[in-house]
Each structure stands twice: as structure tokens, then as C-alpha cells.
């Protein structure tokens, strides 16, 4: 436990709160990097996922591509892109955006697919245009699974951003690699604890968000469903907050 005491001391050490290697600065870098990556990945993945989910076209391709992308080891992609574009923040941004796309894409289109087809059919039959169906029916009902995808992507990026410090002067991961180089275990362990705390905090925040984005009326928390109402069951089933697609 001595090691942990050292690590905690390292975290609390005032000297680690000033200069270009200050903990708040590294934390901010880590968060900004994560946020920007997520925004870039979302800008690509959400519209594409919605298109796939609404039209039902291109799903096979999306599944295959996403599956392939996920099997690729992150470190390999990071180092390869870093060799191409040089050491710096560009490589992590490119590599991590690519890695964050599959979970968001899957969240977007599975969110649409999980909606009872009859609900969409009825919306069309009463006279909603395709755009209105997307806006008023599919987006709100698909939100929980999209947030689930964003949650996966966020944790993925937080984790990989740590690894990105291997090729760029970036984020909390620097402490791990700097400590490794100087054999300063307190720094390595302290940095690791910070990353883990950050990941768990974001996990908690997303768990809360997911509770709130389940549209009222489909959360299953709004009371018992009467017998004979088979229509909403598939939706509410797939939107369970403890759905394995959303919790990792």
C-alpha cells in the first residue's frame, strides 16, 4: 500500500500543479482531445447512421466495416498514422476519430432499427413526411441507443488518448510514459489513477444521462403495461437502460 501512498502524494504534490506539465493542464488536454475527437466522429457517424437506420440501406457494409475497424489494434493504427504524419497531435486525432466512429455509427442505426416498425409505419400513414418521421419519431426514440454508442466511444477515446501520449505530448498519458522512462513509479501510478478516475467519472455521468434521455412513456418506469398491448413491447425491451449494447 506504500506504493499507493506515494502515488497519492504525487497527485497532491503542489509542484505538479504548475508549469507545462501541470495536472490540471494535462487533464484539460485529455478532455479537450476527447471532446474534439467525439465531435468529429459524431459529425461523420451520426448522419451516416441515421441514413442507414432510416433507409435500411448499407447496413451490411456498415456492420462489416465497423467490425473490421474494431479488430484493428489501436496501438498499431496510432503508430502507423504517426509515422505518416509525424509526431504530434494530428496522428492521435486521425486515429481516434476513426476508432470512435464504429460505436457511434452503431448506436445511431441500431437506435432507429430498435423502433417498432409499426410505429414508423403509422407515423407515415397519418401523413408525416420522411423528414418529420426522422425528426419526430426516430430521433427521439433512438436517442437512448445513440447515447449508449457515444458512451462506448467516449470510454474508448479516454482510454486510447492515454495511449496516444506514446506518439504525442498529450494528456494524462504523459505521466505514465514519463514515469516509465525515469522509473518513477509514483508518477506512473498517480497518472494511472487519474485516468481511471476520469474514466469512471465519465462512465457515471453517461449512466445518468442515459437515465434521462429515455423518452418518457417508453422507459418502462411509467407503470405497468396492460395486457393485450403487444405493440410497444419490442421498443421498451430494446430501450431498457440495462441493455447490453449500452452498458459495457
Amino acid at each position: 500500500m506504500n506504493l499507493f501512498a506515494d502515488a497519492v502524494n504525487w497527485i497532491l504534490e503542489p509542484a505538479n500543479y504548475v508549469g507545462s506539465n501541470a495536472i490540471p493542464l494535462r487533464l484539460a488536454q485529455h478532455l479537450v482531445f476527447t471532446l474534439v475527437t467525439l465531435v468529429m466522429a459524431s459529425a461523420i457517424a451520426i448522419p451516416l447512421g441515421y441514413l442507414i437506420g432510416h433507409t435500411g440501406r448499407g447496413r451490411g457494409l456498415a456492420v462489416t466495416t465497423s467490425g473490421g475497424l474494431r479488430a484493428i489494434p489501436t496501438l498499431g493504427l496510432l503508430t502507423l498514422v504517426a509515422l505518416w504524419v509525424g509526431i504530434g497531435v494530428v496522428a492521435p486525432y486521425v486515429a481516434l476519430t476513426v476508432l470512435a466512429i464504429p460505436p457511434i455509427l452503431a448506436g445511431a442505426y441500431t437506435g432507429f432499427e430498435a423502433i417498432d416498425r409499426r410505429t414508423v409505419d403509422a407515423a407515415r400513414a397519418v401523413g408525416m413526411s420522411e423528414l418529420q418521421i426522422v425528426q419526430k419519431v426516430e430521433v427521439p426514440l433512438g436517442l437512448p441507443l445513440l447515447i449508449g454508442g457515444l458512451r462506448s466511444a467516449t470510454l474508448q477515446v479516454i482510454a486510447t488518448a492515454t495511449l496516444a501520449a506514446y506518439v504525442a505530448d498529450l494528456g494524462l498519458g504523459r505521466y505514465l510514459f514519463a514515469g516509465l522512462k525515469t522509473r518513477d513509479y509514483a508518477e506512473m501510478l498517480g497518472g494511472s489513477m487519474l485516468v481511471i478516475l476520469l474514466a469512471l467519472a465519465l462512465e457515471g455521468i453517461f449512466a445518468l444521462i442515459q437515465r434521462f434521455v429515455v423518452p418518457r412513456g417508453v422507459s418502462g418506469r411509467v407503470g405497468g403495461r396492460a395486457p393485450g398491448t403487444t405493440d410497444s413491447t419490442p421498443v421498451s425491451h430494446s430501450l431498457r437502460t440495462e441493455d447490453p449494447t449500452v452498458a459495457r
Partner: peptide
């Protein structure tokens, strides 16, 4: 069990590689 599993799964791997030795006494 399921909450524990969910939290464990959220822990990034690289930091875990650093923390584990301190917990179980393996070499880094």
C-alpha cells in the same frame, strides 16, 4: 456483480497495467 463488471470494463487498459503490479505484486 454486474455493476462491478461494468465499472471494471470502463477502466482503460494501459493504466490498469500500471496499477495491477501495485495491487498484486507482479513486476511491471
Amino acid at each position: 456483480i454486474l455493476t462491478g463488471a461494468g465499472l471494471l470494463y470502463a477502466v482503460p487498459s494501459l493504466p490498469l497495467f500500471f496499477v495491477l503490479p501495485a495491487v498484486i505484486g507482479t513486476g511491471l
